[in-house]
Write a protein that binds this DNA or RNA. Structure first.
Lengths: 345, 345
DNA sequence: CTGAAAGCGCTTACAG
DNA sequence: CTGAAAGCGCTTACAG
């Protein structure tokens, strides 16, 4: 297995010579072609193992026109959100020879241009786009070059043939709100992410439907928007507490925002869940470690990355993909941050 | 600029034909060779821009033996820690044509083998290794193949010529402890990460030195180890509180562990910093958003990734690298989680 | 300053 | 079942 390898990379020609066959024969063995005699195949395989031979990627790529690489495109890796999805991508790729190349854009024009180059230079077989916009330059370029892609959590509408993966945001919003209703809450705030995110809109629709089903009028003063970061949520939560008739529960746009919500409540001496119930969205690794442990709607980010990647691999291989739009379930994870209203008062 | 491009990738031959020159001339223009007439250069450049031509990576790579890619190797991307470093890597690469390929191992044997293949297949010019071990298979393979690498936060000793980047952990530990001493604390616990991490050992040495300087004997009961995750810290903090003479302050191994510390204190009705002062390590984006905002030692992870990458690029280019070991400063970030002992009692 | 020629390491028809 | 030949798109001496 671990024979001492030479410092110079081996070539197929060397393997062929050592095995006493021609180069095409070695190639056929490597590419699992049927037309090789069993004895020959075995001999070649033995030599390759002995020498630790690995096919040169550049040469193969030049010949086949496939790079064996896909791009992971996201504005910023600076969020648990994107990292979780990326882990799912890696997971799905583990059993293949395909690699992920990172293409964060960070909003820099320069990087966008670099990325467009990348698409043209033949080193990308396909792309996973996180939070892509219909008008995104990325999408347009991919389409023009006929490079397959899958979008995770699309921002806005995609084309009818574009593949996408997301979570059941509407249903998640409904589940969260219904749960709070079931505990007896009647004034439930929604402290969402950005107003223009489809996620936000869908979750809010779920929230509204649940309230309507319960015959509770919707109070616009209880609907707030943040930016998925704690500071914005801290601000909005503080503002909600200043209302003449403050809510007794909040459905929050993501777990990260819950940090800001907790902070605002802490500073107002309002215990969770005694004085305020909180439901998050995502179920991040740290969410169970907050004090109190956060009740939240689980968003299967890793699974979303995995599913998107599997779809992309099929697309690249030219295999049929049955589902154009995949939505993954968003179950409620009950922990300690919810209770009945004024339970402790 | 944005002429409609053909769907078929262009070749250098097409550009040469369109510009009325030979292929080598186009190549020389692209590679900024001096021996091209100004007029010719201009004409070729105009045609390239007009057509939107981009050099094929595989062909160039096959010819030059360089892939224009580096590997980012880490056990798991599932930590803010690794993601921050990765952002730094991307940052340093933004002005180059080099790309990052992800190579998380997740402890899977299979992935390690895949990665060894990758090194052999010519698609890696160099590697950034996070938390690499001297005995790591990665390091050994890189050395054997003469592929340059830089280690961020080495686990254990490296070879004398191996480049590495880290933070001034010893000094950070000293700073944290001195700060707590300056507030009047005398019983200061250290709730560190894994005992065998060099980071932990260095920070602990800083802690010990600071206590010694202050003439305070070291109490082994106050030194605890975790795994950088909140749950372990929760456990150890709970245990510290059960001591006959509990500490009045804790120096914690990383900010994430502070979540567990906060949780334990919350459950024991011990306000921070009233009943317990807490200093973290890292200064993560969320640390300022905790309640109370966390006082911590800043570890410049992004900068570490950036510096490591710049060193690697020099190594790859065959340029001299002056510093073999780089240590970046770890300043104290004062926020709300520290106070004088029994201030509020 | 310019271009004809060789060759990087593979894969793919194709002839035997 | 096996292998000689062509060629993927570049870069690099080298001759003119």
């Amino acid at each position: 297995m671990s024979e001492p390898l030479p410092h110079q990379p081996l070539t197929m020609a060397q393997i062929a010579a050592a095995a006493g066959v021609s180069i095409p024969t070695v190639s056929k063995v490597i590419n699992q072609r049927a037309d090789v005699a069993p004895a020959t195949r075995e001999r070649v395989e033995r030599v390759m193992t002995e020498y630790g031979y690995v096919v040169n990627r550049a040469a193969r790529s030049l010949r086949t026109g496939q790079s064996g690489q896909i791009d992971f495109v996201v504005q910023s890796l600076h969020s648990d959100y994107a990292c979780e999805i990326l882990r799912g991508v890696e997971d799905a790729l583990a059993s293949t020879e395909v690699r992920v190349v990172l293409a964060s854009t960070h909003d820099y024009q320069q990087r966008e241009r670099q990325w467009v180059q990348r698409l043209a230079d033949g080193s990308t077989d396909g792309a996973i786009l996180v939070l892509a916009d219909k008008q995104s330059i990325h999408l347009q370029e991919l389409r023009r070059r006929n490079i397959p892609f899958v979008v995770v959590d699309a921002l806005g509408e995609l084309g009818p043939d574009d593949l996408s993966v997301s979570a059941t945001n509407l249903s998640g919003g409904k589940t969260a709100t219904r749960y709070l209703l079931s505990l007896g809450h009647r004034r439930i705030a929604a402290l969402m992410g950005p107003a223009d995110h489809p996620c936000t809109q869908d979750r809010l629709t779920g929230y509204r439907l649940a309230l309507q089903d319960a015959g509770i009028p919707i109070d616009p003063a209880l609907i707030r928007y943040g930016d998925f970061h704690p500071a914005s949520a801290y601000r909005e939560m503080t503002s909600l507490l200043a209302l003449p008739e403050p809510p007794t529960a909040v459905f929050v746009g993501n777990d990260q925002q819950c940090l800001g919500v907790y902070k605002a409540l802490h500073e107002h001496g309002m215990p969770v869940p005694g004085a305020m119930s909180v439901v998050g969205f995502d179920d991040m690794p740290y969410s169970s470690q907050l004090a109190p442990a956060l009740t939240t709607i689980r968003q299967p980010l890793l699974e979303m990355g995995r599913v998107a990647t599997k779809m992309l691999l099929r697309l690249i291989a030219g295999e049929p993909v049955d589902t154009v739009r995949v939505e993954l379930a968003t179950p409620l994870i009950k922990r300690e941050s919810c209770g009945s209203p004024r339970e402790n008062c």
